[in-house]
Design a protein around this nucleic acid. Sequence first.
DNA 1: ATCGTTATCGGGAACGTTCCCAATTGGTGG
DNA 2: CCACCAATTGGGAACGTTCCCGATAACGAT
Lengths: 339, 339
Amino acid sequence: MDNITIKDIAKALNLSTSTVSRALRDSYEISPETKRMVLEYAERMHYRPNPIALSLKENRSQSIGVMVPEIANNYFSQAINGIEAAAYERGYHVVISQSQESYEREIAEVEHLASRRVDGLLMSLSSHTADVSHLKSLQSRGMPLVFFDRIPSDIETHKVIADNKGGAFEAADHLLETGRRSIAHITSQPGLFITRERLQGYKDALQKHNVPFREELVKYCSYASDEVERNIDALFSLPQPPDAFFTASDRLALPYYAGLKKRGFRIPEDVAFLGYFNLNVSDLLDPPMSVVVQPAFEMGHKAAELLLDLIEAKQKPDAYQTVNLSTKLIIRGSSLGKE
Amino acid sequence: MDNITIKDIAKALNLSTSTVSRALRDSYEISPETKRMVLEYAERMHYRPNPIALSLKENRSQSIGVMVPEIANNYFSQAINGIEAAAYERGYHVVISQSQESYEREIAEVEHLASRRVDGLLMSLSSHTADVSHLKSLQSRGMPLVFFDRIPSDIETHKVIADNKGGAFEAADHLLETGRRSIAHITSQPGLFITRERLQGYKDALQKHNVPFREELVKYCSYASDEVERNIDALFSLPQPPDAFFTASDRLALPYYAGLKKRGFRIPEDVAFLGYFNLNVSDLLDPPMSVVVQPAFEMGHKAAELLLDLIEAKQKPDAYQTVNLSTKLIIRGSSLGKE
DNA sequence: ATCGTTATCGGGAACGTTCCCAATTGGTGG
DNA sequence: CCACCAATTGGGAACGTTCCCGATAACGAT
């Protein structure tokens, strides 16, 4: 990649670099003939401006960092799709990192992205991140920051979420309406904001139906390997075993669906099933799965737009917003009524 | 992000930038006390070297570009996962672009990545790319290039593929062994190397079983919206309609599975079904889907390693390799025998 | 006392670009 | 004929690093 530079053009045409630079940017103070000469030569030699030199001078990279727990997760890959689309529309590049749900790796990678001078950072917390001081420090150093989905509650900036409380409420409400009374709630780490919100929606629905909340029906998952079977066993050893499962994340839906079937439980006869799930296969499953769908693409797109606004704003906005996109409840065979 | 620079340190400690630079790189010609002073001050002020300045000087960016048809596709998101892992291991960042299966956008984005000075490019062709001169030109300008999955046949460089011919042969062979005789082959654009290879594997299996090849059973898809129904209708209007479907890509499996079911065909009683598919839900479908699985993560990982080798090599290797990873055939309910 | 050596540091160019501040023309009005 | 202005161009600093060349001092050897 031995590239031609503005200097080469200047030398070849017996001009100064300033003149060439201005001609290329179509400045009014360059004569038409000179412009023509320069543009023609540049075209012929395949001149491409070096964005790195620009970055050094302007102290920005025209790229945004994206930090997600894992790429190979449907929700996140769809969100990244939205992010990439928004970034593309506005001429930015997307640099991707994953925390692998590890707090330590999140810290290291965020620092790495910052030192690479991304113009802003879009992120979704790892499930093991309780302390966000590394992000606060980043923000205090002036890095524009926008969170989506897995958001912290104690950092002030733009945030994009799906209506967690509302979605969970709708889901639990539906299960209760169809006669279920012992709804197991399988969810992520309790430290996450979305976990608490969804739990609250679940509780609200219980209250509406005068069903007491039972702590033992809630399982917080850390994605260990044997966790699924252990949790299912534990739940069905309860004096009042569950008659429905409500899973709170993409990553939990399939394993528990499969786990229940493997254990011989019939869905929905023995247990109803309803999960947060973003894959377009839910209606092809056996039985078709009832789901809460998050607008993953839109969330990524919106979050990226907010970040780019933040980056391109001359100064800090007077107020940060939290965008709350609504989820969609789709009822299928896995949550058919009891009676 | 007002960052502290080496100059700031030099000024603060009354040293020259050269000395500070050397102290930070732990050069032997700097006295221990000076080193200590510099390191301590740098630490205290959160000094982070500016990689952009480095990039400008060294003419490399410590990042690799990845160009895929679409991110929100399971095969590709898993491959990207592998790429990210390999890049992370060797201290590189990953910049992602998608062609959206568009030839024009592929050209523009590849050029954009190149002008951003990625150190190398990892790519999978768009299905509408027949002419690869834009990539040849890139390569001739010295850009290290590695292809995976959707590879061109007329560019010499490292390539990583799954055993396309072998995988397709196994799949078709299985369908033939279980009594199927009219196997529809739903595949991608005929220009792609993988399309031709898979078709060849399909033909080889037919020949082994002395079943004549019928062109009308092969459908090349361009992912238009009404294409699925149109193709299914056309296939079942044939004098000898298909008794099996063999789909050749992730993106085709689910739509045709759903399309067949929607049209009222029973799987596997009326038609057997077997597809290239990388999602871990295939056994939860109704009926469980028989699949050819590609080692997506490994392919991405291997491709990235080859690219990084290419980047870090002092000179061109004397031979390029094409890595052929084997696929896995998993038989489930959707391809149970006819009789 | 002179010289070479070693240890330690500074000056300044270079990477590719932009932009501020001149410098050089040609022409025009007084 | 000179001052002045507009049009066009050039010079050089700056962005943050690295690295090539020197520069300085101390010191032992001759």
